[in-house]
Design a protein around this nucleic acid. Structure first.
Lengths: 125, 125
DNA sequence: TTTTGCAACTATAATTTTTATAGTAATTAA
DNA sequence: TTAATTACTATAAAAATTATAGTTGCAAAA
C-alpha cells in the first residue's frame, strides 16, 4: 500500500452488506443491482413470476452463462427466489421477487422510466 | 448464429441511444449509468462541482485508470462536463453535471436512498 | 539548492466479468 | 425415428476492472 495512490478509508467509514464493504450508499446499491443485466432481470420479474426460458426470451441478447450467474447472484443477495417444480428433465423452474426484492420495485421502475424518457426525447436513434 | 441459442430480436424492437442497441428501457439506463462506479461519480457531483482528486478522495477504492475511463465515458454520454482551468501542471480540472446529467438526479438519489435504507434495516453488517 | 510533493492523468500487466459456442438429461411432439 | 424442449454447465475467448508504477511542470520544504 502506498499512500501516494491510496487514501485509506477506515473500515468504520465503509458500509457493509453481506460481507462486502462499500464506500457509500450509492455504491452499495450498485453492488447489488449493478452490472449489465441484474436490473433487467428484476424489471421483467416485477409483473409476474417467470421461468428460465421466459426470461431468456425477454432478454435475447444475454448469454446463458451470464443469465445463470446473475440469477444465482440475485438469489444469494435475497432479491429473488428460485422454485423447482420437477425433479427430472424437462425441468420447470420459476423465478420470483422476494419481499426484499419487492422493495426495489419503485427504483427499478424509475430506472426503466428514465430510459423510456431518453428514448422519447432523443427519438430512439 | 444458431436459432437454438438465440431468439433473434429485430433491430426495430431494440431501443437505440448513441449508436448502441438495448433490449429494453431498463437496459438502456443501465448501459449509461451501470457498471460499478458511474452512479457513485454522479452521486458525488449532485451537490457540487469536484476536481479529479476530490472525486478520488470521495471514492478511495476505485483505481485511477477506472476513474479516468468512467469519467470519459460519462462525458461522452453527455452526463458530465470536464473543464480545464490551467494549461501547465499542476492542472486544475473540474467535473460537473450537464443539464442532461441533472435529469438523473432523482434517480441517483433514489439509488442512494435504497442503499441507505438497507444499511439502516440490516444494521451495516 | 536539491529533494519532495502535488495534480491529473497514462502505461502495462494481472485479475475478474461477460460473451461465444457447444454439450447434457429426460421427456414429448412431429 | 428424429427433432425439439427445458434448464442449465463446460470451455475458451474477449472485454472490463484492478494493481502498480511512471509522467509533467510548478511550488514549498529541508
Amino acid at each position: 500500500m502506498d499512500s501516494r495512490y491510496y487514501m485509506e478509508k477506515t473500515e468504520q467509514n465503509m458500509l457493509h452488506f453481506r460481507g462486502k464493504a462499500y464506500p457509500c450508499c450509492a455504491s452499495l446499491t450498485m453492488g447489488i443491482i449493478g452490472g449489465k443485466w441484474k436490473t433487467v432481470i428484476l424489471y421483467h420479474l416485477i409483473e409476474k413470476t417467470l421461468r428460465y426460458n421466459e426470461l431468456r426470451k425477454e432478454m435475447p441478447t444475454v448469454t446463458e452463462r451470464t443469465l445463470s450467474l446473475q440469477l444465482k447472484s440475485l438469489e444469494e443477495d435475497g432479491l429473488i427466489k428460485r422454485k423447482v417444480y420437477t425433479s427430472k428433465p424437462p425441468l420447470k423452474v420459476e423465478y420470483r421477487l422476494t419481499d426484499f426484492g419487492k422493495t426495489l420495485i419503485p427504483l427499478i421502475q424509475s430506472i426503466a422510466d428514465w430510459g423510456d424518457s431518453v428514448v422519447k426525447t432523443y427519438g430512439n436513434k
